[in-house]
């Protein structure tokens, strides 16, 4: 059992906040609240990233996830006006089963990671910081091909999203309209 240090206290606090926000997201009836709680969860995780000396990832977490993606979520929620869904649950038994299974998995994880064979690895806080330089160097040398592929994936996603959300007009009218234009 490690000595209780400030680091550990901070970690446990942040971890507790992360789990609490995740739980809140799960059980919140209002989707907007869920989204906001998830943003909070992302922020706590970003905090952990900073602690582990990964400022680039931490910032990306906040800007990309908490910023861009969650804004997108909120936008869609409000666009559709589906903050709430009728409370008719067909699969209540399933929900119970899911929670139980989740508990089983968590127990299993605890058993494996903490009790059965705890790893001797440790995570150092406040140690070496992985600079943006280093990540950039890796991305443009060793991971060049995957990096390029990600750009392609994003392109496909953009195009796909546009096509999927394009308003479908009746075929005949669409053609006419285009001719007139």
């Amino acid at each position: 059992m490690p000595v209780i240090t400030l680091q550990l206290v901070i970690f446990i606090t942040v971890a507790a906040l992360a789990i609490a926000s995740a739980l809140g997201m799960l059980f919140s009836r209002n989707t907007v609240y869920s989204a906001l709680l998830l943003v909070f969860n992302f922020t706590t995780v970003a905090f952990l990233y900073f602690m582990m000396g990964a400022p680039f990832i931490g910032l990306a977490q906040i800007t990309v996830y908490a910023g861009a993606i969650m804004v997108l979520f909120l936008f869609v929620i409000m666009l559709l006006g589906t903050e709430q869904i009728a409370r008719i649950e067909q699969l209540s038994a399933q929900s119970v089963a899911a929670v139980l299974l989740g508990l089983v998995i968590i127990t299993e994880a605890v058993v494996v990671f903490l009790l059965r064979n705890p790893t001797s690895l440790v995570v150092t806080s406040g140690g070496d910081v992985v600079s943006v330089n280093e990540i950039g160097g890796l991305l443009y040398s060793q991971y060049l091909l995957p990096f390029e592929i990600t750009s392609f994936i994003l392109l496909v996603a953009v195009v796909g999203a546009i096509i999927l959300t394009k308003q479908e007009k009746p075929a005949g009218k669409a053609v006419e309209g285009e001719v007139k234009k």
């Binding site: 490690p2 240090t5 680091q7 550990l8 970690f11 446990i12 971890a15 992360a18 789990i19 995740a22 739980l23 997201m25 799960l26 989707t31 869920s34 989204a35 969860n41 952990l48 979520f73 869609v76 929620i77 589906t82 869904i85 649950e89 399933q94 929900s95 899911a98 929670v99 299974l101 989740g102 998995i105 968590i106 994880a109 605890v110 990671f113 903490l114 705890p118 790893t119 690895l121 440790v122 995570v123 150092t124 806080s125 406040g126 140690g127």
Partner: peptide
């Protein structure tokens, strides 16, 4: 300034499981 790896792994496992439960019990695709 160290925290055992296991703690992170357990935290990760708990969050992952909560996510999985969320997928199963929520009917709202968002």
């Amino acid at each position: 300034n160290t925290i055992p790896m296991s703690y992170y792994l357990v935290l990760s496992a708990v969050m992952f499981t909560l996510g999985a439960i969320g997928v199963i019990i929520r009917r709202n695709p968002l």
